[in-house]
Design a protein around this nucleic acid. Sequence first.
RNA 1: GCCCCAGUAGCUCAGCGGAUAGAGCAACCGCCUUCUAAGCGGUGGGUCGCAGGUUCAAGUCCUGCCUGGGGUACCA
Length: 622
Amino acid sequence: MDNTGKVSPGSSACVAPQTLKLEQWGLRLERPKNEQHGDYAVNVSPLAKQLRQGPPQIAEALNPLLDKAFQEDELGLHLIGGFINVSMSHSLLSKAIHHVLEQSQPGLNDDLAGQSILLEYVSANPTGPLHIGHGRWAALGDSLVRIFRHCGAVVTPEFYVNDAGLQVLKIGYSIYLRALEILHTKNPLSGYTQPTEFPYPGEYVIDLAQAFLSDTSKGSKNSDWVLQQFQHAQKELNPAPFEAIEADEEAAAKYDPVIQFALSTVLTQQQVLLENLGVHFEAYFFEKAYLHQRDLVTQVLDQLKHDRFAYMQDGALWLNSSEFGDEKDRVLIKSDGSYTYLAADIAYHHQKFSRLDDNGNPQYNRFINIWGADHHGYIARMRAAIQALGHPVEQFEVLLGQLVNLVIDGEKTRMGKRRKMLTLEDVVSEVGVDATRFWMVSKSADTALDFDVELATSQTDENPVFYAQYAHARCASILRNALHPPLNTQSVTDDESTAPFVSEAAYLEFEATLTPGHFAPLFQQFLPQETPETVLTALKQLILKLDSFEDSVIESARFATPHSLARYSLELATAFHRFYNTCRVLTPDPTLTLPRLFLILAVKKTLAQALELLGVSAPERM
RNA sequence: GCCCCAGUAGCUCAGCGGAUAGAGCAACCGCCUUCUAAGCGGUGGGUCGCAGGUUCAAGUCCUGCCUGGGGUACCA
């Protein structure tokens, strides 16, 4: 989490002061807070200390340099205090539009070129449905994957499946208990004792039990298997309480069929939902098959022991994590001989660092994990283990996200407190994929998120995703009408007004010969009912917003903050809506209409790209 | 106790040490015979939790305190 890099729009389409190397001086081009000051600005104050001069004097001294560099582009410069303010000429603004139209994908850049990132997120236990919190990590993680890739990084999104350990036995046995309960209800079993509690009490377990009983993929009937288990168990309590099963390895092993069913069923449900959300993982990493069955956990622990980073005490194996800044040492092997979750996770991370590419070099140079704030205490020990194993710990990053509160009927409810848990699937089917995803990334991961189901569905005014989508749909509508006017214009009968605003031939010719010069009429010609000053203001704001898209993408990538991109999409939508209200696009005059039309095309393209990076659809109609 | 996150307009939140701290929603006043009113314009609304400190400059950095959330397992 190295946040020292400063975002500088050095790659902006219009003003490209590469010759000035602003960044090496610690300066950057920024958007002035007050629009009246100009379109861009350079604040020279950071140089004040070094040069022992007041910012205004420095600005004065730098001005000729900048003036010279920007001369070709007809920029207007003027000084206020320590600020060099830059006003863009109409020809530069035209270039900005042209640039967007030229690009295959707006905002595409190479800011993260050379980075190879393994991004692990969600990694939910395969013991139940995903909840709303998982939804936040899914939306956040997938957006980051898209954003990182847009900045030239190679990204592998990965999901770690904890399919080993106690919780897996727990869900399997719970399903068995529920299945038995169902069979007993249908046809009373002699010797059956109603269990006082289920290891996993959730209602979804009953559904899983039902599914298990009707599943015939194994050839034999699962109900027969359940009854068999029941009859073979000869304890005073039948079925036995979970504690008895847990303590007896042989007994536990008997429940393997139902465990396998649970794992594959639950994981499949999770995967279907994630894909439905547009969240795609390149790899699912299975703890049992990839770590335990390959002895990787043992090997890692042996290495730690060998290098004296792990030691025995009180019958347990401890990691010497306090040596690396953790507040205390941590257990790796419990005194009952079983591994802790940490032990397996260390092996997993060791495996991550050990992966090689085709040339035998380390495959990744960044390892990012998205964890909930409840795992915060875990960071120090994981870092300790990574250092103990000799891996570059600075390549290990944790994005800690604050938790999600579900708001129902205006009241916050903590996850799991209600007996009837509202799952992520319930929420998505209620509010839709787009609203869910946008909502989840619209706020900084550092702040706790309230997810209000009613708000996300009903009150569209408070649900900003539609605002951005509406802007896109409006653009689409204009483009449709330009070439295919609505046929149902009964009030108008003369030929001219039923014809398209621009002919397809004119459109194609304009597109084929497009140069920045084609946009000159935007700034020069207006309809009688338009106020040039108002139009120009809205137009300029819209173009500047378009031009800052790449910077916005880079910023989101560097700071891993998709929420700033969500904000950008709303700001671009605002600039567009404002322009739409001051300036008519479709007019009878092609020289006026075509440049405006292609500006709309650039807006539509950029808006669609911004939404795409957030995994939100850009509808053609609403 | 210790660790992490947050505290900015009535509400939900942006805000990369730099110009007069910004959006959305809510409130109030306007704008549809014209490309989608899921839209646009305008008005009101702030001791940036509190107290110190660093700096030419602090909502932003440091220290302490207050409030809320999370964590502090031989759970996962």
